[in-house]
Design a binder for these strands. Structure first.
Lengths: 196, 196
DNA sequence: TGACAAAACGAATATGATTAGCTAAAATGC
DNA sequence: GCATTTTAGCTAATCATATTCGTTTTGTCA
């Protein structure tokens, strides 16, 4: 077991783990360096400071999520695909709460978005839209519906992991019902779109 | 116009404004002190450091939101109330993006929650639940439906202000359709609950 | 007016991010 | 295999920010 040298991926993965385990306050270059058995300035050989690290984390988050969603959707369509996608989405956020929530920020500020981040985000949109289309919606109807579906699932899981649901009411049951509501509503939207 | 002395409310309001205007990075005690024409340590007379300030901001956010929702729901019921509530919720987040998003964190960590924060959060849950009940749902059915509704609206507005909707597709129209989907789905859930 | 309490201040300290310059190890080219 | 070049890592120094302390100023009110 020889001590291998650090690389960017190792640094970013360790940062993601720290973020998930101890939350945003804990993500400090010092902590990260200790975790990796190295001095703080050495991290600058692999990431562009704290803000560069945050950019990498945003990319990692989008790529991991796209990965999970892709896998969940393979070989399914219609209601089955929509349900599988929703469950994968929620499971991802529960596994990566810190990483996921760290990337929900009031943005519209950094126009030069990372290329790989943008690619992964487009991939996510494409997967969701494709599944929605397998549901009978096309064009802008599908895009609006994809936004609705994503809002519901993202919103539920965000509130869940951030403790927004105070009450002692079963979250699994709530999620099941949310999906029922969305599927009913989308089916109605789908019928309506056909009569046009 | 004599120079009035500072108080806690002024400090917290200024912090909220800074957060909304320039985002979480910009919220620093130094910036805040400059903004208020005072030296940094003076702020400690009014708030308990940066983490105390963040607690106050969480409370302010919940109270402002509860306020807006209450006002929007007055004198309405059923679909009309649900729609008004959703629009008020979205409008609130668009007006207070920094303040709102700063309080979506992976928590479940600080058990000694501020009393006024908790009161305001309960108030929000009560308003939403009451409106859902005016829709024909009772007991746990109403609570699950309230979670669903809140997930959808919170999710939509969060994604909207954080730039999560990349495409150049009208957000107002997407929101209108999201509400249609939710209302359809909740009506279906309501009919189903009646046959029990 | 005089005493008390609250607010503000300057100075000092601690932590964390960042930069610079140096060294040693690893990769590369011959 | 050896010389050159690149790269990772280090120490030391600097900067920004949060926080504490003791003191001074400023309002309040008896």
């Amino acid at each position: 077991m020889t001590k291998t040298r650090l690389d960017a991926a190792t640094v970013v993965n360790a940062a993601a783990e720290l973020l998930n385990r101890e939350g945003p306050e804990a993500l400090t270059l010092g902590r990260l360096a200790t975790m990796l058995g190295v001095q703080t300035p050495s991290l600058y050989n692999h990431v562009d400071g704290l803000s560069g690290l945050r950019r990498e984390l945003a990319r990692l988050n989008a790529q991991r999520l796209a990965e999970e969603l892709t896998e969940a959707a393979i070989g399914k369509s219609g209601v089955e695909a929509l349900t599988a996608l929703a469950q994968a989405f929620r499971a991802y956020i529960k596994t990566n709460p810190g990483l996921y929530l760290a990337n929900v920020r009031a943005s519209a500020s950094q126009p030069p978005v990372d290329e790989r981040l943008q690619a992964a985000e487009e991939r996510i949109v494409r997967i969701v839209t494709a599944v929605i289309e397998s549901f009978g919606l096309k064009g802008d109807d599908a895009l609006h519906a994809a936004r609705a579906w994503r809002s519901a699932v993202h919103g539920f899981a965000s509130l869940e992991v951030s403790g927004g649901f105070g009450l002692a009411l079963d979250c699994d049951e709530s999620f099941r019902r949310l999906l029922e509501v969305m599927i009913h509503g989308l089916q109605a939207a789908s019928s309506k779109a056909e009569n046009t």
